[in-house]
Amino acid sequence: MDVQLSVNQDQHPITVDTRETLLDTLREQLDLTGAKKGCDHGQCGACTVLVDGRRVKSCLALTVTMDDREITTVEGLADGDTPHPLQAGFIEHDAFQCGYCTPGQLCSSVGMLAEFAAGWPSVVTPDVSAAPHLDEGEIRERMSGNLCRCGAYVNIVAAIGQAGR
C-alpha cells in the first residue's frame, strides 16, 4: 500500500506491506534507527515514539494506519544541534548505560510530561479527580512502560525530575 508518512516534519511517500509496523518502517525503510526493537510486543517501551504529540509504542502500530499523523522520533527531539533538555539531562545524570532503551525513555518522558502538564492523573495520584503533583513516585509510575535492564531507573527519574521542574 502507498502511504504518505510524516516523520519529524519530513514527508516520506512510501510503499509498505500492510503487515509492517511503524517501528519496522522507521528502522528498515527510512533509516531512522533511533526507535529500538526490544521486544516487538509492546512490553518494553524501547520503540516509543510520539504520534501527534502522544507517546505510543511503534511496534504495535501498523504503518498503514499512520498516514495522516505526525510522527516524532528521538531523531526529531533536538532543536538543530541543540539537544532537547531531556537529552542533555540524560547525559548529565548518566540516565543510561547501554543506551538501547534510551530513545524510548526520552520520547516517553516527553510525552509523559505533556500528559502531566495536561493534568492527567496516574494510578498513584492520591485523589484521581484532582490535579497531580509531579514527584518521584509519579514519574516512576508513569515511566514504568519503559524497561531498562541496565538499571538506570534512579538516574532516569532524576533527569526527568529536573527537566520537569
Binding site: T33, G34, E75, Q87, I91
Partner: peptide, 21 residues
Amino acid sequence: LDRVEGLEKVTGRARYAFENF
C-alpha cells in the same frame, strides 16, 4: 566525565548491530 558516546546515544545516532544495511 560524562559518557563520551552520550550524545550519540541520546540522539539515536548510535548504531547497533541490526541497524546496518
